[in-house]
Nucleic acid binder design. Structure first.
Lengths: 208, 208
DNA sequence: GCGCTTCTCCCCTAAATAGGGTAGAGAGCA
DNA sequence: TGCTCTCTACCCTATTTAGGGGAGAAGCGC
């Protein structure tokens, strides 16, 4: 078989760390090249590493600098490494921040060890493993906000809103829908009145 | 065990359809309440259905109306149903459009039958199954765009861009940064020139 | 010093947008 | 038949944005 993937485990809880080390270290597909308890330890080790790690399993809440904070630095020092975040939190802020900063996977700590192993291997095969709850939140992020639009606005008005927030000018919206600019303007006036905003800026903000 | 999930399969290729029907129909966790070859058949059947379906496996490229097109209508007629899209395409436009319109999962047609079954069950458990390539594209969507801004624009200009795309007016940006409206305007002129756009609409579009 | 860039602010005109009206054509409903 | 709602389109004025110009101050490299 091919060489095992060089894996780094960063986890502050000694019990959990040993559990991960024991289990993942026994897998023939993985080789633990570093097991440490802090982000600082990882950053200090990276320049001395003979070979850069391919996989980094990173706890998100660590003493000192959090796993989130070191993500950008990590991408500088080990640009080829895939980072999988592990956390007990499933708040969307942490999730999106981690993804934005370049994590390739996001697993809850409740993930069973075999599933964790599978996730690590999936990352190396070009995947992006996410725990159920995480994947749902990521998906929900793409849905249009059901705030005001769906209930208050007419179908045509929602159509106009979609085009406006997509960045089209009123003129472009008019062309797109095959109606006059004045009509688009009339609709946007209604929209602004219904959503209690008074500019496209506010509209964008209210739908964020 | 609990009742099997009521599943609808929409697939135009007769061979594939029968394959899906055969395999998924044999699973004790699933009950195929409708197997059809077109989006129209599904829309026509829904009002007559004794019980609404819980799961809809929907091919994205269908003769007549595409699976994408009927998603909004589907969410009206069967708001509680979870929709899993299946396709040979993995272009990001289709993916994001499907997710935006309310799909709960996005699988490539290359997905093996057992994995397909697992994905369907995962949806019912609150998950959001995605094929590897799809998950990667979804994740990549959260990364900051390395397009023009970072390379071409100055630090201050990037700051202005962020505020502009956030939906603030030039006046608001001026207040935010503690400078005059004219200065903000000067910056945005430079930004437009550098990014080859000529309105905020185009700017939003170019950064999408 | 000199040139260059960046950030700041101002001038101008033209175009787009905001907000206030009015109004006709259709659809749906009591 | 009226009534209401929606979509359509136009009128008006005021504000904001776009795009052209110029210009001073500060910083950087040669």
């Amino acid at each position: 078989m091919t060489l095992p993937y060089r894996l780094v485990i960063i986890e502050d809880d000694p019990t959990v760390r040993e559990l991960l080390h024991d289990y993942l270290g026994r897998q023939p597909e993985l080789a633990c090249v570093l097991v440490a308890d802090s982000a600082e330890a990882l950053l200090a080790w990276l320049p001395d590493a003979v070979q850069p790690p391919q996989l980094i399993l990173l706890d998100i809440h660590l003493p000192g600098r959090s796993g989130l904070d070191i993500l950008p630095r990590l991408r500088q020092l080990a640009p080829t490494a895939e980072v999988v975040m592990q956390t007990v939190f499933e708040d969307s802020a942490s999730i999106f921040e981690a993804l934005r900063r370049g994590a390739s996977g996001y697993l809850l700590k409740s993930t069973p060890l075999p599933a964790l192993k599978a996730a690590l291997l999936e990352v190396m095969q070009g995947g992006a493993p996410m725990s159920r709850a995480v994947a749902r939140q990521v998906l929900a992020h793409f849905r249009p906000r059901p705030l005001a639009p769906s209930a208050v606005l007419t179908e045509r008005e929602q159509e106009i809103v979609q085009n406006l927030v997509a960045g089209l000018s009123e003129k472009q919206v008019a062309q797109q829908l095959g109606i006059s600019v004045q009509t688009v303007h009339s609709h946007s006036k209604s929209i602004y009145r219904k959503l209690h905003v008074s500019s496209r800026s506010e509209l964008l903000n209210s739908l964020r």
